[in-house]
Design a protein around this nucleic acid. Structure first.
Lengths: 247, 247
DNA sequence: AATTAAACGGACCCTTCGGTCCGCTTGGTG
DNA sequence: CACCAAGCGGACCGAAGGGTCCGTTTAATT
């Protein structure tokens, strides 16, 4: 998934997918493949899908060649990792279908979607931007949307969500909150929660006024968030500036 | 603004900034500088801040060397272009301060912010992500926030916006809507408008129910959006798939 | 017109990143 | 145990992007 234009190479990998044992890997190969998936899952979650294949192979303790023998391209590895994560989310959503109160089920679903995406950059990035165009991710995403739609229908029937929004509306609202959290990683959790409450206020049919939680964020909070994000690694720079010798 | 770690080079360019005529450029130099700014403004607006310096120089009709003589780095060019755009937005905001109805002023400001960012990727990207950490952009952003705060205060005093949100809350909500529009460039304008109306519904103190405009988007609309975005260039692929020969 | 320093521009360098190749190693089997 | 193909890994490749250099051109001045 390079930015500009991918070569139109079909990359028709793993041809017999649904067979029980496509190829019967050697023991060490199987182990390395798993290590790669684990390493990629972890790195993608922490730092997004942009982490390089070199780093993934390194963390997995294998060479880059091994990575590309197990996965025809970096994209394939991303898909493998990410579809798994989406399926997990769908399962969590399905569990909420048995929730008694339709209203709390929707809100729980929204909360959880945001929570999961906030703590897993891979999940978030896969569900937005260019990646969602991939057929496999797209399919998983549609499944997820279907679950949301079921839960939403029940909540709308019960009158706890305004009737004129669709599942797509809600999903886009969720994406908005997620994006803001991603744009300002250092932002206090409270502020993200307020965002979410604002969205919920927009989704409910109206009536009673539910005050937002916590304190209203000020400009200083943004400064703080900025500093915290910057503080991750270029601390050297500020330190160097602090100890100004000749300059 | 490369992703990983910038070299700590201070790049102390254009030292006397506020002087009337810092250097008195030669006529052709002045002309080329302007051409570069124009080209960059245009390209950044259309395709974001990731466009390469080569393409900018090409569109400006000059060599790459000329670009780097006028601007010490690509970042400097970006800053020059983008701060200008932000200042323009601030002026538009200030104009709304003289609006009689405080309520319509806030909503007009929000509408306009989203509209401007939707049609200018440079403006949007500069106001989010890593770029906002740049001092110059940061300063302009804070100015803009100050204007929003003034308008918001008046609207809150008039009771047309819930009293427990701050300017930062509103700004983050705007960013959320902008992000969604950016993630799905092919999404029909209507759907973005619904998003915005949902946010407005969340911001108002509650009471009367304002139905959303247009039709509720369905899964098919997402497909459509996807296709429209993808349709920009890899149409060959879908066509190739359509005309399946051996497979 | 002559002079000169500013400006030009594209060849060149460096780094990053996805992906390939091929000689060496090793797990599994007869 | 011996064999050998599957597997391994790192050297290598090409593309892309930001930034630099230097021989040549040209605007301004006298």
């Amino acid at each position: 998934m390079r930015r500009p234009r991918d070569t139109a190479r079909p990359a028709c990998h793993n041809r017999h997918e649904m067979e029980t044992q496509p190829k019967r890997l050697r023991a060490d190969a199987e182990r390395n493949r798993q290590r790669l998936v684990d390493a990629a899952t972890e790195l993608f979650r922490e730092r997004g899908l942009e982490v390089g294949v070199g780093e993934i192979a390194e963390r997995a303790g294998v060479g880059r060649g091994t990575l590309f023998r197990n996965f025809p391209s970096k994209d394939a590895l991303v898909i493998a990792v990410v579809v798994e994560r989406i399926r997990e989310s769908i399962e969590r959503g399905r569990a909420l279908l048995s929730e008694e109160d339709p209203s709390s089920a929707v809100f729980a679903l929204i909360d959880e979607a945001i929570e999961r995406q906030a703590e897993d950059r891979a999940l978030f990035e896969a569900l937005a931007g260019d990646w969602i165009a991939h057929p496999e991710i797209r399919a998983a995403h549609d499944d997820m949307l279907a679950v949301l739609e079921q839960i939403l229908d029940r909540a709308q029937a019960a009158g706890s969500i305004r009737a004129d929004v669709s599942a797509v509306d809600v999903m886009l609202a969720i994406k908005g909150v997620c994006e803001v959290q991603r744009l300002f990683p250092g932002l206090p959790r409270d502020i993200g929660r307020r965002q979410l409450e604002l969205v919920k206020a927009g989704l409910t049919p109206g009536g009673e006024f539910v005050p937002l939680s916590g304190e209203a964020p000020q400009c200083a909070d943004l400064d703080c968030a900025m500093a915290r994000r910057a503080g991750a690694e270029p601390a050297e720079l500020t330190l160097a500036e602090a100890g100004r010798a000749t300059a």
